Computed example of a mutant assay.
Amino acid sequence: MTRPTVLFVCVHNAGRSQMAAGFLQHLAGDRIDVLSAGSAPKDEINPVAVQAMAEAGIDITHNTPKVLTDEAVEASDVVITMGCGDACRFYPGKRYEDWQLDDPAGQDIEAVRPIRDEIRTRIEALVSDLLETPQA
């Protein structure tokens, strides 16, 4: 059985997708491969997202925003977009989910905590689904 690969995509790859990738790596360990990218990546991760994740015991300080590539999508079993609209390409044959989450950009920690917590809840459900469903 091969490990499933999940790709998280948001425009800047600096907040939501980085938090989701951090949670998935933390909760699934080496049972799921994790990628994240953005259609227009920033130079660094949102420091408030880093702070919010640190409060949850997860260090994402060494992650860097990456540009979305065709190769990353092709290598992924599940592609989860987060508010990138038409800026994220669609590939037939992939499992897609679009998570409607507020953008943490420009928000303070009080506003980012609920976004972080919603992402964690969704990641916990995703881990259960991927690890309980036999992979083809």
Rank of each mutant, 00 (worst) to 15 (best):
M1L: 15
T2C: 00
T2F: 00
R3A: 06
P4D: 13
P4E: 11
T5Y: 03
T5E: 07
L7A: 07
F8L: 03
V9A: 15
C10F: 12
C10N: 07
H12I: 01
N13W: 03
N13L: 10
A14I: 03
G15Q: 12
G15K: 05
R16H: 15
Q18C: 09
M19E: 03
A20Q: 07
A21Q: 12
A21N: 09
H26F: 13
H26Y: 11
H26L: 05
L27S: 05
L27K: 06
A28T: 06
G29N: 13
D30L: 02
R31F: 14
R31T: 14
D33T: 10
V34S: 09
L35A: 07
L35F: 15
L35C: 09
S36N: 14
S36F: 10
S39N: 08
S39M: 10
P41N: 15
K42W: 11
E44C: 00
E44F: 00
I45E: 01
N46P: 00
P47K: 10
V48T: 09
V50Y: 04
V50G: 02
V50R: 01
A52D: 04
M53Y: 03
A54M: 09
A56D: 13
A56W: 04
I58R: 00
H62A: 13
H62G: 08
N63H: 10
N63Y: 05
N63I: 00
N63E: 12
T64R: 14
P65C: 06
P65L: 06
V67K: 11
V67L: 11
V67H: 01
V67C: 00
L68H: 04
E71M: 11
E71W: 09
V73E: 06
E74G: 00
A75V: 02
A75P: 05
A75F: 05
V78T: 11
V79S: 12
V79T: 13
G83H: 10
G85P: 08
D86W: 04
C88D: 04
C88I: 04
Y91N: 02
Y91C: 03
P92E: 14
G93E: 13
K94T: 11
K94R: 13
R95C: 08
R95M: 15
Y96V: 10
E97W: 05
E97N: 08
D98H: 14
D98F: 03
D98P: 04
W99V: 05
W99P: 07
Q100F: 00
L101A: 04
L101P: 04
D102A: 15
D102V: 10
D102M: 14
P104F: 02
G106V: 02
Q107V: 06
I109K: 03
E110K: 11
R113C: 02
I115D: 06
R116K: 15
R116D: 02
E118V: 08
E118R: 06
R120S: 03
R122Y: 01
R122P: 02
E124V: 09
A125L: 06
L126T: 05
S128A: 08
S128Q: 11
D129V: 09
L130N: 02
L131Q: 05
P134N: 08
